[in-house]
């Protein structure tokens, strides 16, 4: 019985961790390329969930997984073009404050449009059961979330490593001016990167909607873990985000098992501990421009 509890708890931790990773990867890409810590990332996550809730009656539970991130992508593009673009090459604090304001704005806009009480959001019917196999006990939906996030992460990895645009992002995160001199219109890349990052957050929002409830405070449940994951993993590192996301997810799940009262604090302790030992996180490299 205890074995089942532990393994199942572990899987829960992994599901939670992969969701964190999905949110954090977007944050990380945006940070690496634009040099901006996106405080509004949680708000885009919430937007994903709300847009999915609105669209679900029309396109179904699977359809929204594609459509809602697309809508968030569009909103991200507009936000980058209108708000962030004037701030590049200025003090990093300004970008931080702007996205802080944007977060407040989007969260209140959500309250204004969708109300401050929660909305029911169920997993698609075909995923409503659970699986009990050996020592593993897990709901089908969680398993599906696990699968989808892994597939998305592989896609993101493939995109970054194997496509032209991915190479540009990786190169540009180190030397944007050089990329510019190689014939790449950086401002367009920045816009797409911001859109992409927010779309990933939006997708995480869609996936989380049936697990957590669709309430305005959902954004707060996403943003702090995402910060923690990105920082522990090392700013701008995809590998770091994955490792630390899983680490955080599993740590939280295990603390719930053994010392529930500390489950809220454990990730911050982890972050403080890691940063004090490894100044740039687990996989962080020295980036002059961020220090």
């Amino acid at each position: 019985m205890d074995a089942m509890l532990l393994t199942s708890q572990l899987i829960n931790g992994l599901v939670l961790g992969f969701l964190f990773v999905l949110i954090a990867v977007g944050l990380s890409i945006i940070f690496g390329m634009l040099g901006i810590v996106n405080f509004a990332h949680g708000a885009f996550f919430a937007l994903g969930a709300y847009v999915a809730w609105t669209l679900k009656p029309y396109v179904g539970g699977v359809g929204v997984l594609f459509l809602a991130p697309l809508v968030v992508f569009g909103i991200g593009l507009v936000a980058e073009r209108l708000l962030l673009r004037p701030l590049y090459n200025k003090e990093p604090l300004l970008g931080l404050l702007l996205t802080f304001g944007l977060a407040l704005f989007i969260e209140e806009a959500i309250r204004t449009i969708w109300g401050s009480i929660g909305h029911p959001y169920d997993a698609p019917a075909f995923l409503s059961g659970f699986i009990h196999y050996g020592p593993v006990f897990v709901t089908q939906y969680r398993l599906a979330v696990l699968t989808v996030t892994i597939v998305v992460l592989i896609a993101v990895w493939f995109f970054l490593e194997k496509t032209r645009f991915g190479r540009i992002i990786r190169a540009g995160s180190r030397d944007g001016e050089m990329v510019n001199m190689l014939g790449v219109n950086l401002s367009r890349v920045f816009m797409l990167v911001f859109g992409l990052g927010t779309a990933l957050a939006g997708m995480a929002g869609v996936l989380a909607a049936p697990l957590w409830s669709v309430v305005p405070s959902i954004s707060e449940q996403a943003i702090m873990p995402a910060f923690v994951v990105v920082t522990i993993g090392g700013l701008g590192s995809l590998r770091g985000a994955i490792v630390s996301g899983l680490l955080v997810g599993v740590s939280v799940a295990m603390t719930i098992q053994f010392w529930p009262a500390a489950s809220g604090a454990v990730m911050y302790l982890l972050m403080v501990a890691v940063l004090l030992v490894r100044p740039r996180g687990l996989f962080g490299e020295t980036w002059e421009r961020f220090e």
């Binding site: 810590v37 990093p92 910060f227 920082t231 403080v272 961020f290 220090e291």
Partner: peptide, 10 residues
Amino acid sequence: GIYFALLTLA
């Protein structure tokens, strides 16, 4: 820099 800011937040 940014690590300091994030640490204070944590």
